[in-house]
Computed example of a mutant assay.
Amino acid sequence: MTGNEGQPRPPHHPHDKGYRQLLADKRVFLELLKTFVREKWVEAIDADDLILVNKSYVLQDFSEKEADIVYRLKTWDKNVIFYVLLELQSTVDYLIPFRLLLYMVEILREIYNNTPQYERESKHFRLPPIIPAVLYNGVGSWTAALSFREMLDSYQDFSGHLLDFRYLLFDINRYKEEELMRAANLIAGVFLLDQKMRPEELVGRLQKLAGILKRLTPDEFRHITSWLRNVVKPRMPEGFREKVDRILDASNPWEVERMIYNLELTLEEMQRQALLKGKMEGKLEGKLEGELEGELKGKREVARNLLLLNVDIDTIIKATGLDPEEINALKKQLEQ
């Protein structure tokens, strides 16, 4: 395992940055689990039992990759310590089961190395469970294998002898709007805003979420405005990003309608400018096409006159810049 200090990292996708900031808040991370994972162990988790592991797990064979979010947890009923490893994906990665396995091994190796020798050699020594998960916000379907054994050749022939695990998948675009609205919380609201949409649909989505946003705490609301900064703002032209910043800086949960209205005005202005720019570019393009067509028409007229004077084709090519095929076609027309 290698730390990420001093090593160059490729720039993160805007969504990665947004989700990293969002899910570094343990209450939001717990909300993610309790909203979308229907398993008993989730019910037993309390926010006070969550500890964000402030360390990057970078793999030697995938030096451009690093584990995104790792939490250390314990359940209140059994006091079992375990880990949740969450990977953020905006594209399908068919190696994800293998990558998750390597991250899990690195976490277990670190725990083993940090455990006193007399403890780890005891017959009572146990390694903690690690729950792997993937959060995917790509537009297309997630088509990677959902379990590790599916990456093994002829796994059906060896049944219970193989290492295997199945990761949790949070596939944002597969959740229905009704389900997200019914959850009525911060993480469901973010998922709804992150689902595929045209820029002009943003205001409509925010209007649907207005009632939920009003009920958020100031800290939760700041998560929403940070999300809009990290994900929505980069999609806008440079001149409008400052306006969006000013709107979001002045926003709060009890004035959600004002924030939505101001964003709506900004988006309408952006669309008007884009439309005007498109019309101007269309007129300019039409003018240039007309000029080029006129210039070409003039060259053809010159070529016809030279052909009538029996000037040789090479000289006509040099005089007009027309290609030989076009001049020969003109010559055939004159001979008819």
Rank of each mutant, 00 (worst) to 15 (best):
L206E: 00
L193W: 06
E289M: 09
K243Q: 11
G239W: 15
L334R: 14
R126V: 08
L73Y: 01
V244D: 00
K318I: 04
V244W: 04
I327M: 03
R222M: 15
G321S: 08
E43V: 03
T315G: 02
K283T: 05
L202P: 10
G204Q: 13
D323K: 15
R27V: 07
I313F: 06
R205I: 10
L248A: 01
L248I: 02
L308Q: 12
E281P: 04
S154V: 12
P8A: 08
R258H: 12
L135R: 03
A303N: 02
P14M: 05
N305M: 14
K26L: 06
M259L: 09
K26I: 04
F191G: 05
A329W: 07
R304G: 01
H223V: 11
L306R: 00
K208M: 03
V84I: 10
R109S: 03
T217F: 08
Q117M: 08
D171R: 07
E264G: 06
L101H: 01
L59D: 04
D323V: 11
N4K: 13
H13K: 04
R215F: 03
L206A: 03
H15P: 05
L152V: 14
A210R: 15
D312T: 06
P10E: 13
Q60C: 10
L263E: 02
E150S: 10
E257Q: 07
N328D: 13
I96V: 08
L152C: 10
G138K: 06
I96W: 03
S90K: 11
R182N: 08
S141D: 12
E257H: 06
F165Q: 05
L284A: 15
D46W: 13
G321P: 04
D68V: 05
F165C: 02
Y103C: 01
F82G: 00
G211N: 08
Q89E: 09
L193G: 00
